[in-house]
Design a protein around this nucleic acid. Sequence first.
DNA 1: ACCTGAACACCGTTCAAGT
DNA 2: ACCTGAACACCGTTCAAGT
Lengths: 202, 202
Amino acid sequence: MTSVTRTAGAYHHRDLRRALVDTATDLVRTHGPDGFSLRAAARAAGVDPAAVYRHFTDRSALLAAVAAVGFERLADDMVAGMAAAGDAPADRFEALGRAYVAFALTDPQHFRVMFGPYGSGPSRGADGAGGPSAYGLLVDALGDMGTAGVMSGPVEAAAMTAWAAIHGISTLLIDGAVTMTDTEADAAIDHVIGSVIRGLGA
Amino acid sequence: MTSVTRTAGAYHHRDLRRALVDTATDLVRTHGPDGFSLRAAARAAGVDPAAVYRHFTDRSALLAAVAAVGFERLADDMVAGMAAAGDAPADRFEALGRAYVAFALTDPQHFRVMFGPYGSGPSRGADGAGGPSAYGLLVDALGDMGTAGVMSGPVEAAAMTAWAAIHGISTLLIDGAVTMTDTEADAAIDHVIGSVIRGLGA
DNA sequence: ACCTGAACACCGTTCAAGT
DNA sequence: ACCTGAACACCGTTCAAGT
């Protein structure tokens, strides 16, 4: 009898909420926010569409959960990039910026949901996983640069400006606002990141 | 008899294509790209949904036309801002940047369509009205700065970097990625534009 | 407590038919 | 040449009903 090993509350799904977020994330990454549907996510999870409303208030709440997953992954990528970059604050900041752009170019659809009308921004990433938020990492990296004397001025203002530049080049590239070859795009990324670091200079 | 004054081919609409673009633009500006529907645009224009396909291949083609209207308006705003700013190249560039951010904050839904998966970018603005494109204006303004000796380096690279910063702060502000008061937002815009101009400095 | 089934008011798109 | 009308396969959301 399998009923013996069955854990309580695991009749249809051990964790439908988690299953829905996982399948929704996959659907968004492959088909984009517009191609994504609540019904398709329910279908992929093997449940009736109405079952989704037991765990999310509506379609946009499910997309917000997908966005939160994205911010956790982005923060992870930034931490990994900084770890590989070494100890020099400017190097660590550059690695953080490159991880940000790389995430956007690797996973444009996910990135779009994170900054679309759904996800409530990068501070959201702190919830759930308990890790640092993407924005917190940026502020910390700039704070380290200030301490090391390779940056001047208030950290918050510098953070907004640096973030705007890095976010801007990311969105321009993934939205195809400008037609570029891969090598041209790399040069543009280099130029933006170099310009940001020079702009922060003490 | 009214039939005497009727012009040829004006039975149902003098220009259904234009009427559809106008109503679609209004719908996008009030309800956003997601709230917009081809059927609602047809309803507002007083025609059957199927009639839209006589003028546009599909829903996204209609949205692309809305985006093109947006790029024409953006270029107009930039020209007006520069005209009011005077003759100094750096002042004119600053006015251009401020017009860009102001457009995004005033008409966020339209701005979103322009840079979403639909509109094919700002170079599109050159078509139709015959006016200059938003990107062309940016490149020209930077070229003038180079001629005046207040900017160094290649224009194309500088244009991408400046555009990224200005576009970035625009999208971060309208997507609510960071929560700010109006005065904080103004300060952030000032900081970004100042940083861009300083970064261009010869 | 959690999920199903059927229903409602919408979509985008197609195609034959009207004028 | 341009538009209508009806149809198709989808949506998001709600609500009574099942277990």
